[in-house]
Design a protein around this nucleic acid. Structure first.
Length: 232
DNA sequence: AGCCAGGACTGAG
DNA sequence: CTCAGTCATGGC
């Protein structure tokens, strides 16, 4: 199998960040008008292409249903119809209801969670049905402006392919790789994750990675030896 | 015609 | 805890 995995140094992490920023420019994430829309999108985008999520969000807006009151007032069946383009619509309708119920109970979390420590708030989010590690961190970072580093499938794939992390690394291991070396600044975490997603979509596809045009070419040691598991 | 997309839950071993 | 099965539409 591949050589021993060497975690990237702080310097390497910054080099990666710089290269991505130079190539792609600021991504301006999250693509949404309000924090509540971010929250809705965070659930809808689970294992789903963003183009599909956009259609679902548009449908919600068209129906004037993109608010806690409207979403909680509508029958679960109706919600499922609105978000149909996002896939897994029955499942996501339930998850959405759970998250929106929390949002309403909290009464605009952007304000009410301001004094709450990130770790405690993260644990609270993880209690919500349908909110796992990535969705919790996305909510913290992109809806609530907290310094939570988001790890997704692209992050795992990119760092495994470059030999910076084992293919089976857990979410917390990957996240710790960043948070243990970078200062907890929401602005940078925001941009870093958005850039990794852009890199993933553009150059690090699951089946046909375009390693020759990749902006990270030459950084670290790309390990794409034949036989390597190409999952994640 | 497949293959895959900005995951999480569930039940089994 | 690890792991396969499940959920489903739309774009390439």
């Amino acid at each position: 199998m591949g050589a021993a995995k060497t975690p990237p140094s702080r310097r390497t992490l910054l080099t990666i960040y710089r290269r991505l920023l130079d190539r792609f420019g600021p991504r301006g994430w999250w693509p949404a008008d309000t924090p509540f829309e971010v929250a809705v999108g965070a659930v809808l985008t689970q294992s789903t292409a963003w183009a599909n999520v956009e259609q679902a969000i548009a449908a919600l807006k068209r129906a004037r249903a993109l608010s806690p009151r409207r979403l909680l007032g509508a029958p679960i069946r109706q919600v499922a119809r609105w978000i149909r383009p996002a896939g897994y619509f029955n499942l996501k309708a339930r998850r959405l209801r759970a998250l929106v119920a929390w949002w309403a109970r909290r009464g605009d979390p952007v304000i009410t969670t301001r004094r709450q420590p990130v770790a405690a708030l993260r644990r609270e989010l993880l209690m919500i049905y349908g909110v796992g590690p990535e969705t919790a961190d996305s909510l913290l970072l992109y809806a609530l402006g907290r310094p939570a580093f988001v790890v997704d499938a692209y992050t795992k794939r990119i760092f495994a392919r470059h030999g910076w992390a084992p293919w089976g690394a857990s979410y917390e291991e990957l996240q710790g790789m960043f948070t243990r070396r970078l200062p907890p600044r929401a602005a940078q975490y925001n941009e870093y994750h958005a850039l990794l997603v852009e890199l993933g979509k553009t150059f690090c596809a699951k089946r046909r990675p375009r390693c020759h045009a990749c902006p990270l070419r030459g950084v670290g040691a790309v390990r794409l030896e034949a036989g390597a598991r190409m999952v994640y």
